[in-house]
């Protein structure tokens, strides 16, 4: 049956409309759960708030387990899903740059737009920074291109590259996540409480 759009259950033209609806909903949830506060986001690095880690780990788990079940029962064809292509060094360098920006500013690109929507000045500065970064990158694209397009590994998943059975992978991943939640809770209790 699924994925719905490639299999024609929902007409292709609805693609953008659905994307906008999901985007609005996503932004609302981010704002509602306090992710438009840079102090909450940065908390994960200083050890006083692990909400970011928990939320994103949980989201990944729910999606992973849900998709595996739906694939197993035949509601969804996993092979038709889009797998993000891996450009190894591009991803590593980009990840480091993004991580530094995350710690320094306390926003990731998505939440920064949320914060702009509620009128935070630091977020506005942050977004201007993003635009400047994009501009520099596009201007120097020829310089970055070998890294940007190189080290192409194909549309691989962790399960492919590690060669593990995907069900076992999901199970182990769940255990790791829950251990991480428990550990983060313990760390939070030891760190001095910060009110923000």
């Amino acid at each position: 049956m699924g994925p719905l759009i490639p299999n024609g259950v929902i007409p292709y033209e609805w693609n953008n409309i659905i994307a906008i609806l999901i985007g609005i909903f996503f932004g609302f949830i981010l704002e509602a759960s306090g992710f438009s506060s840079s102090r909450k986001l940065a908390g994960v690095f200083y050890g006083y708030d692990f909400a970011v880690l928990k939320v994103f780990f949980t989201a990944a788990l729910v999606a992973l387990i849900g998709i595996l079940y739906m694939d197993y029962l035949g509601y969804l064809n996993m092979e038709q899903l889009y797998i993000h292509p891996t450009y190894l060094w591009g991803a590593i360098i980009g990840g480091v740059v993004m991580g530094v920006g995350f710690v320094a500013a306390g926003f990731c690109p998505g939440t920064s737009l949320c914060a702009v929507a509620i009128g935070k000045i630091d977020a506005i500065v942050y977004v201007i920074g993003i635009m400047a970064g994009i501009f520099i990158f596009s201007e120097l694209y020829t310089l970055f291109e070998p890294i940007y397009n190189g080290y192409f590994e194909g549309n691989i998943t962790l399960m492919d590259s590690l060669g593990v059975n995907r069900y076992w992978f999901a199970f182990i991943f769940t255990i790791i996540a829950i251990v991480a939640f428990a550990a983060s809770d313990m760390i939070r209790k030891r760190v001095k409480k910060i009110f923000y």
Binding site: I65, Y72, A170, F173
Partner: peptide, 11 residues
């Protein structure tokens, strides 16, 4: 979570 993930392995 653990039960659901374990269920996948046992299916």
């Amino acid at each position: 979570f653990v039960v659901l993930a374990g269920g996948l392995v046992l299916l």
